[in-house]
Simulated assay, not measured.
Amino acid sequence: MTVSPIRASTLADLAHGFLGREGGVSTGIHAGLNVGLGSDDDRAAIHENRRLAVEAVAPGTALVTLHQVHSAEAVTVTEPFPEDARPHADALVTDRPGLLLGILTADCVPVLFADAEAGVIGAAHAGWKGAIAGVTDATIAAMERLGASRSRIAAAIGPCIARASYEVDDGFFRRFAEQDPANERFFADGVRADRHQFDIEAYVAARLAEAGLERIEALGLDTYADERRFFSFRRATHRGEPGYGRQISLLALPS
């Protein structure tokens, strides 16, 4: 099975793709295109999957990824990082052609950003902790320091866990409601009185709009519900599986 990137119309002029699990060489619970260096998958398979991902989106570029820690930290990239010296951060930006920015997810929200006119791109991993702490705001600010303008930045939100699949407790709900009462609109009632269904995709989209972005595309793809296409941390957890794969979202400037 070939690797088939999912593309966003807002980023149509740039080499990019949201990749799922299809087309890779991993087997077992990691079956498919698992690119997670932090997984317990076979190391050779992970590196081959990463090579396949690069070839599918931007052949000849150098893949750059992070050691993601659910933070609001964004770093500026000028050259590839050694695999064992990846920064602990959750977003990266660059104005350098030849670098392929990569964000890994398995239910969290991947966001790709581009100001094509300025030649500045960014990519962010927005789990709920990073999202509420402002990882997307940090990405936009880092892009502006390289000459981007938020009035021109386009953003695409890739596959992530959907509200129907994302049950949270009262404490989680209160954390968002206390930050801003308007955040209550991103929660629906759960099956039980003390449970809620959280729409993290809509929350991230709203944060982008509040930051001044005018072109925002959300793909509306549920990683939890679509086992054939995507890895899911929550699905693996609910099944009691000992590990899970990670998919990758990629973006590069033209050379």
Rank of each mutant, 00 (worst) to 15 (best):
Phe187Cys: 00
Gly127Tyr: 07
Glu83Trp: 00
Gly171Tyr: 14
Leu101Phe: 01
Leu100Glu: 08
Gly122Val: 02
Pro110Phe: 03
Gly119Leu: 10
Arg192Ser: 09
Asp95Ala: 00
Ala188His: 09
Ala141Met: 07
Ala182Trp: 08
Gly102Pro: 06
Ala74Thr: 09
Asp95Cys: 00
Ala118Gln: 01
Val75Met: 03
Arg163Thr: 13
Gly98Ser: 01
Leu66Ser: 12
Phe176Trp: 13
Thr136Tyr: 13
Ala62Cys: 11
Glu83Ser: 09
Glu117Gln: 09
Val69Cys: 14
Gly134Tyr: 04
Asp107Glu: 02
Ala138Phe: 05
Glu83Asp: 11
Asp115Arg: 01
Arg145Leu: 11
Gly171Trp: 13
Gly102Thr: 12
Gly190Ser: 08
Arg86Asp: 07
His70Leu: 15
Ala155Ser: 07
Ala182Gln: 06
Ala156Arg: 02
Glu167Trp: 06
Asp189Leu: 12
Pro80Gln: 03
Asp95Phe: 00
Ala74Phe: 07
Lys129Glu: 07
Phe187Gly: 07
Arg150His: 11
Val168Tyr: 03
Arg145Gly: 10
Phe172Ser: 15
Phe113Gly: 04
Phe176Glu: 00
Glu144Asp: 02
Leu99Lys: 05
Leu146Ile: 00
Ala74Gly: 04
Asp90Ile: 01
Ala155Gly: 04
Ala164Glu: 15
Phe81Trp: 01
Asn183Asp: 04
Asp90Phe: 04
Glu184Ala: 15
Phe113Leu: 13
Gly147Ser: 08
Ile103Lys: 01
Thr76Phe: 05
Ala193Tyr: 11
Ala72Met: 10
Ala89His: 04
Val135Arg: 08
Ala177Tyr: 10
Asp95Pro: 01
Leu99Tyr: 04
Val77Arg: 06
His67Gln: 15
Arg96Thr: 08
Leu66Pro: 13
Val69Glu: 11
Thr105Pro: 06
Asp189Glu: 12
Ala138Gly: 04
